[in-house]
Design a protein around this nucleic acid. Structure first.
Lengths: 267, 267
DNA sequence: TGGCCTGTAAAAATCCTGTGAAAGCAGGGC
DNA sequence: GCCCTGCTTTCACAGGATTTTTACAGGCCA
């Protein structure tokens, strides 16, 4: 249904003939592409916000496996396709198990390589394709994706970009408990380092700004040892229609009772 | 999170030599596999709750492309790998654009096919998170993986993370007796030290919380000298010991209202 | 009855989260 | 280029919650 969402691709290959032919086609298809003739650190790949990476093992030299491993670990959502000269079954299996998504032998047809890159990128985007719906309203909040900002009434929360993305993710998954690793993965775009507290810090900032503009509501709930859950709840006398529920205590399934979403009704 | 989750695979192929060799390996790897020698309607594939489908174009005959298209449309989350005899670039591209995730030519090494299926399932799983399995219902209990929590009716059991994981393991293996070492291994993730009583302690906590929310049911059974078994049983009739509580001012009718009403089973 | 095993309770140790603030970065204006 | 500003990341610590350890009582089986 959404046919040709543009793909951001990096190519690590020094085979200029192949790259030239490929580039002609990717450009025709409207892909954004960056060609590198040698490996660059995974951290820089992060900054490029890629959908996919195409690489030839031969330009990596001795570091190849190590490099592949690191890339796949740091960027678990990046589609990685190896396109390289001859290889043994064992090598291909090793690569795939390491996290590579597809492995093609050279020589190969650029159209097939593109089709494989598309296939690899396809799954990832299906889930976030539908964010472009109108403003999302939860509790007293109004989240406007087009403005990268949230409002209560007319007042902006003054969210920074990351704060906004975090809030949007939480609101999109309302009612679900998200683990820190998952949050980090989806907001920051790469794997969370062990012991990183960024998520906690941003949760606090969000809570502060939410509290400032919308006191009387509680939005973000902590699940000890697990993560966070977004669920707007009116607290204390201020909110008319839901005050009784708030008084009844915190119910993790509160969204069932508050939000009208067609679900199975049991007599 | 869950590193080596077992893969549910269906194979549509009539090349008995290949299938035999492959099956030997998938079984060794602990995969659940079903072999079909001809196509079956996509609707039936749905019911099989597969992670991946491996198929040979040649057994599909004229319907092949049509069938592929329908499968990919009906089951967008299914990993589809084609493993077939010779094919042209155009065919492969067509398949991949149609929704196939990977296309391998025969002859090929079963290990590589498995690695590719793993790669495809890995990607699929990542994008779909864990919304997959609906809540598990046992006895009066409702276990929600997405909430890391269990409920009776609307009341949360207030399980901590470990308590929840233990309960989930037990419920998943309902009816089986699990030894402490096995439980520890699977919940804690590493080997249990000799003399460690953690499992017993957590079983007790679980029993307490289960009893509190769901009196009138017995869930965890002790097998002396062996381990524990999870099996929900409604405990019959009137509980005599409740007499004291009644005297102490607790309304005995509370039981009636709690016990009866929730026992729908979800297929 | 004796020798394990299990249930139970509570103390001790560990881990987790909230929080404030400093340090590190990136971008814009001069 | 340099400084300023605002944003992000890192650090350290306090207060709690959870997990682990320990101890003892009671039960199961030979």
């Amino acid at each position: 249904m959404n046919p040709q969402q543009t793909i951001r691709l990096a190519v690590i290959d020094d085979d200029s003939g192949f790259v030239t032919v490929l580039t002609k086609r990717t450009e025709a298809a409207g892909w954004q592409q960056r060609v590198l003739s040698s490996a660059i650190p995974p951290e820089e790949l992060v900054a490029m916000k890629l959908n996919a990476l195409l690489l030839d093992m031969s330009v990596l030299g001795d570091e190849a496996w190590d490099y592949l491993g690191r890339v796949c670990e740091v960027l678990p959502d990046l589609g990685v396709v190896v396109c390289t000269g001859r290889s043994t079954v064992a090598q291909r299996v090793r690569g795939l198990r390491l996290g590579v998504d597809d492995w093609v032998g050279k020589p190969c047809h650029p159209e097939e390589v593109m089709a494989r890159i598309e296939a690899v990128s396809r799954r990832r985007r299906r889930s976030r394709a539908d964010v472009e719906t109108g403003p999302l309203v939860v509790g007293e909040l109004e989240i406007r994706a087009d403005q990268f900002q949230a409002f209560v009434g007319d007042g902006s929360l003054d969210l920074t970009r990351r704060e906004f993305e975090l809030l949007q993710l939480l609101a999109d998954t309302k009612g679900q408990v998200l683990e820190r690793e998952a949050i980090y993965q989806r907001v920051w775009g790469y794997a969370m380092a062990h012991g990183d507290r960024s998520v906690d810090v941003f949760i606090r900032k969000l809570r502060q700004k939410l509290e400032k503009r919308s006191p009387g509501w509680r939005y973000i709930h902590t699940h000890f040892g697990v993560g966070y859950r977004f669920d707007p709840e009116a607290v204390g006398g201020v909110a008319p229609e839901l005050a009784d529920e708030a008084a009844a205590g915190i119910d993790p399934r509160a969204d069932d009772s508050q939000v009208v979403h067609s679900s199975f009704t049991v007599a």
